[in-house]
Amino acid sequence: MLLSRISGKRLAAMLAACLTPYLAGAPAHAAGEEIAWPKRLIVSAPSSGTPASMIMASIARVIEKNTPIQRVIVQPIGGINNFAPMMEKGEVDIAIHSGADVLAHMAGLEENRMSFMRTLLPTSVQAFVVLTTPDKGIHNLNALRGKVVYSRNPGNTMFDPVVKALLAGAGLAESDLKANLTKANNTVAVADVVEGRADALIMPAMTNVVMELRQAKGECLFITPADDQMPAVKSAMPPGFYFETLPAGSRSYGNTDEVKNAPMYRSVLLVSEKMPKALAAELVKVIMEHRDEWVGVHGQAKDWGVMSLGLPPLHEGAREYFEGKGLISDEQKAEQETFSAMLSQGN
């Protein structure tokens, strides 16, 4: 027979030549661990058309192209009270949500601890500040005394403790404000500031809001804690927030001048702690190694996959990847240990 005439070395070489194209295209598995690839992934994302949904849809195509997963379905399922129970039951695999809100639940500051969720990947970054205009006479947190502000959001209490922490930096409480209004939408709130019915907005710094205030009043001021107020603010700030300096002329926030001590928070891709370590590690690897295929979808995509403080506990597979690449700082590792200890105490 033909095979009997072929030497062992030659047969091995022939087999290697035939299999190499297939092996080269196969995803690398975590060392010593077989990956149980699902046929599909269900991803809970914000409303269709948002930057996060657009970026996630592009990442979904990358996953389909570079893994055995056949379909990655990205759909708006709703907030944490909608997707979290579904994730716990295995009906949702990945969700995009605010890391600070997840940590608030994990810390017991909100109903339902939801301690089973883990971070697969950091996503967008957001600053939370006081926005006002020059004619209001507000140049520091102390000047909020006796002012009318918008800070409340109907059905979303995530930012309430952040507002209290900022006020605490100036030795103020909500009772020291003339009024703290509930924001039905940004359009009405901005109009009230412009037309004199309100003095300031305490909210995520959104470029469109900043530009509207600047166009109407000549400038939009960003008010954040002074250096001597930082100890009081930090001690009152809920988990998941950290502080950075916003460079002057930031395209992400629209600020004219440099803004020091800006409270920041992250959104993240969440998965269940039950996701196999090898699967989580390989998903992160595929997403990060094909970054050039999705990072140009929207300006916010540049922050996706960039480590920082303020992240809910990383999934062990994700942590293995980021630590292996040297992408986690000692400060970030220490915070991760603190958050993990918080979970252990609550269980």
Score class of each variant (00 low, 15 high):
I202E: 06
L23Q: 09
G324T: 11
P263I: 03
G108K: 02
A280W: 07
L2E: 15
E316W: 04
K274I: 02
S267E: 13
M211Q: 15
G108A: 02
A189M: 09
A26E: 14
G99N: 09
L327S: 07
P313V: 03
L314F: 05
P38V: 01
H315A: 05
D135T: 03
A198V: 12
R152N: 02
L120Q: 01
V190Q: 01
D227Y: 07
F222C: 07
S272N: 13
A84G: 04
M342E: 05
P276L: 11
D93V: 01
A236Y: 07
R71T: 13
I63H: 10
F241D: 09
E110Q: 09
A216Q: 11
E33Q: 15
A60M: 11
Q332T: 15
A341F: 08
L131E: 03
A280Y: 04
D227K: 15
L269E: 12
P154K: 02
P27L: 13
A318E: 08
E320R: 05
R61P: 07
S235V: 14
N81A: 08
R10A: 14
G296W: 00
S7M: 02
G49R: 00
C18D: 08
A26G: 13
Y22F: 15
K89H: 06
M230W: 14
V284E: 04
D227F: 10
R5Q: 14
K302M: 10
V271K: 08
D160M: 12
G305T: 09
L15N: 03
Y321L: 01
V286L: 10
F128C: 02
L15V: 12
L120C: 07
S329G: 10
T187H: 06
A165T: 05
V268F: 05
N180A: 03
I202R: 03
M86C: 01
E64R: 11
M203R: 11
L201Q: 06
E34H: 15
T256I: 09
P204N: 11
P51E: 01
A57Y: 10
N186R: 03
A17N: 06
L144V: 00
V130P: 00
A173K: 14
S7G: 15
E110Y: 06
D101K: 14
Q336S: 12
M288C: 07
A104N: 10
I6E: 01
E331S: 06
M87H: 02
I96H: 06
A198N: 08
I94L: 05
F243C: 11
P76K: 06
E111F: 03
A278R: 08
S115N: 14
W294N: 03
P239F: 09
M275E: 11
D257H: 04
V62C: 10
I80A: 08
Q70T: 14
K39P: 08
N185W: 00
T182L: 06
E33P: 00
T187E: 13
P312W: 02
T224L: 10
S252R: 03
A100I: 07
K217A: 09
R145E: 05
A334V: 04
H29C: 14
L279S: 07
P239A: 02
